[in-house]
Nucleic acid binder design. Structure first.
Lengths: 204, 204
DNA sequence: ACCGTTCCGTACCGAGCGGTACAGTAATGT
DNA sequence: ACATTACTGTACCGCTCGGTACGGAACGGT
């Protein structure tokens, strides 16, 4: 893994660290609420450096969301590796609650806090976030479809509908977490949601 | 009910209609995404008229949210009148889905779309919305507490936890609705959520 | 008719927005 | 050594933001 031969003055900051800081600012304030002034202050750089390294506010945001997906939502992909559909859902919602209420990150979820609604000029931002959430839901639906084929879920189960329900609970937990609800109270909602989960033996 | 004797030039617009229009703009674009230009255009008035009638953008928003609660969320209060806790939850979530997917209003819910995250200057807006959502949750918890006392819910039930679960599902549905998910698909999630509901006979 | 009162429309305010021009500076290539 | 290249910091761009000053217009009271 060789670094490319660097010509010219080297960058005076670590883009990975700067992106990490930007992620936190977007997480707290949302896309529109995060001003360039606040972003550059948190990143420890000036505006031209930001634009040279990331292109624009929108591209910076999308890179921050990607980093968020890789780093702060790894639990969602890992949950798919659980042996049964029930355990997948339990791991997903359980880890979701833990991620939403960490003390070293803002409360809630960047995908929601980033902007469920934006101004007319930034409609693409909320659409981008919604699309990425639905991509995760599709992966969960595929996992549930496999479980149904493996007779781990009842034959009559709608995998997409079940995945949608789980994601709806996860999103509601994110909204609640952003409002300051405690981890213990959110865990209670996970337990309740899992009671709705179909058992392998049941008819539907 | 006598109207006060009006002195001076009469107002050239209907404040109720103007507030209705403002509500829709906030609903679509959120608090920060709704500019005064867009608001006044939709309301059919000029900025000084807006400020004379409503005080400020923030006060206009709060009045819009209040109108929303009275008008677009009346179903939430009505649901509390159902005879059993299960029917309360079923009515609440069922009507919630219908309200989120009406064709004559923006998709989703003003309380979420208004702004789950805002810039540092407008932190009060998201706090205001979160507080009003939790007030509704408290009313639902009180209804469930009554149901438990009436042996309509198992004695071991935590009314606040159950209310939190129902509200979490409702919020998740709102996020999903804003992303364009269909009414039918959301109704499916209501059915699943209700399967988690404790039955009167059960232990907990 | 005239006055006080209230509202409307234009034109404007300071501030902050996202984004950039430009000159200075620190590295490499030859 | 010196040209080339790329990054940094300052200072600035046009624009839009939320909010308002002010003069004209439409009403009731007397």
């Amino acid at each position: 893994m060789s670094t490319a031969p660097e010509r010219g003055r080297p960058r005076g900051f670590d883009t990975a660290v700067a992106l990490e800081r930007a992620k936190e600012v977007f997480w707290k304030y949302g896309y529109e609420g995060a001003s360039l002034t606040e972003l550059t202050a948190a990143m420890g750089i000036n505006k031209p450096s930001l634009y040279a390294a990331f292109g624009s506010k929108e591209e910076l945001f999308k890179q921050a969301v990607q980093l968020y997906a890789e780093q702060d939502m790894a639990y969602a992909r890992n949950a798919l590796d659980q042996p049964t559909a029930y355990e997948v859902a339990a791991a997903l919602l359980g880890d979701n609650v833990r991620a939403l209420t960490r003390e070293d990150t803002p409360p809630g979820c960047l995908s929601i806090q980033g902007g469920t609604a934006c101004g007319a000029d930034n409609a693409g931002i909320s659409a981008f976030l919604a699309h990425s959430r639905l991509a995760g839901e599709a992966a969960l639906a595929a996992r549930f479809a496999r479980a149904r084929d493996e007779r781990d879920l009842p034959a009559g189960t709608d995998p997409a509908g079940l995945a949608r329900f789980v994601m709806i609970v996860a999103e509601g937990q994110a909204v609640h977490a952003a409002a300051g609800i405690s981890r213990e109270q959110l865990e209670q909602s996970t337990d309740l949601a899992l009671r709705a989960f179909p058992q392998p033996g049941a008819e539907h």
